[in-house]
Design a protein around this nucleic acid. Structure first.
Lengths: 213, 213
DNA sequence: TTCTGTAATATTCTATCAATTAAAAGCTAG
DNA sequence: CTAGCTTTTAATTGATAGAATATTACAGAA
């Protein structure tokens, strides 16, 4: 038996609420009752409190002294604002990764493998390699703060938490290969442009999905 | 008697620890004991825990499951990384502020007043107008996420928390006037360049101060 | 030396107490 | 009798302390 490594309750609660907020289960400006959430989830109030603070620091809810929390309304502008910053930071990360001679050979191999054997791969494989590529780029940029913010924006981006649509990942595959190739050839401007288009497409995908509800 | 509006304990503790960490009172990779801190400050463990999470989200400490927290080592690279991202974001904010026709007349008046009456102004006045200028620019950029991150970086920047040196603010005064004027005249590139120099000077100031200890 | 079991120590979660806020009932004045 | 203000009351959050759980250190045996 594998001793399943258990997440802390506060983190679990935060993930749950994050998912719920980003997927639109709470309407904007709705009040989040601390006690209600704790009762619904069957946990104590303390971990829920901690989850609230976590989400507050991510900008998904706002806390008021002695008055509880209200959820930010997730509208079109929210998504655009989010991705504009993501584009700014991730493009900078790509530039720095190229300057630091990032090694992309392993990632390229994995992407090629996915491309050649599309039927043997699960959706989780795509998600995993997708995340690995982005994380590797942030890492190669060699700037702790930049890495931290990229990760924060990644987690707050509903694309990865909610709708890992298969078509989206298939299109991303070609973009990723082009991106990695550009990095390998040290074509900074080209890599930059690909990254921007890649993220813009993700954003539009999300907005379209958002408008349909 | 005035009913002083009290900050939550967790926020107070977080401020205390943030100041301590940024000013180098804790050596890098030092373990922070939850119970010790709570005993030292004479408060319960819960608010300290919440403060830890706050600081963790700011990247000043790292938490490990059931193993407590360790403080990030604040070295030269930490400061450089921090300011490189700040420059990236705040320069983008300036560009957007200009595009959105930011109104700088009030801020310009306040700066001129400070410049003309240097003796009637306290250090707090400089700090206040300094913060107001930057915040106004972020606000005028009209991007919630960008604003949030700029504020986060501002708070995590030791310049404002620790050493509000008077000479630094005097030099900043001229830079601010030049910056605001450039914004008023919609000279995006110029404003950008001024902002970058301004922040770089802050950074170098901080590094010099850091090396002296 | 290496592995295992026990003890100590620190963290995480729960339950209770205290303080603040919002609302409802009651009272006075017009 | 109604409007407006005060007081009381209900409910929610903030803080504290104790119970449960996980990790680390150390001692003893293979």
């Amino acid at each position: 038996m594998e001793p399943i490594k258990q997440m802390p309750t506060s983190t679990r609660v935060a993930s749950l609420l994050r998912k719920a907020i980003l997927s639109g289960e709470y309407s904007g400006d709705e009040e989040l009752s601390l006690t209600k959430v704790s009762n619904q989830l069957g946990v104590s109030r303390t971990p829920v409190r901690e989850a609230f603070q976590q989400l507050s620091s991510e900008g998904l809810i706002t806390l008021r002294m002695n008055k509880g929390a209200i959820v930010k309304s997730i509208d079109k502008k929210f998504i655009i604002d989010h991705f504009e910053v993501r584009i700014l930071l991730e493009c900078e990360a790509v530039r720095r990764a190229i300057k630091n001679n990032m090694d992309v050979s392993d990632l390229l191999k994995r992407e090629q493998k996915l491309k050649n054997n599309p039927n043997e791969s699960t959706i989780e494989d795509y998600v995993q390699v997708n995340q690995d590529i982005h994380r590797s780029i942030w890492k190669a940029a060699d700037n702790q703060k930049l890495f931290q913010l990229c990760e924060e924006l990644w987690n707050g981006s509903s694309t990865n938490n909610i709708y890992p649509a298969i078509e989206h990942h298939l299109k991303s595959l070609d973009e990723h290969i082009a991106l990695l190739t550009a990095i390998q050839n040290k074509q900074a401007d080209k890599a930059n442009s690909i990254m921007e288009k890649h993220l813009t497409r993700s954003m539009n995908n999300l907005i379209a999905n958002f408008d349909n509800k």
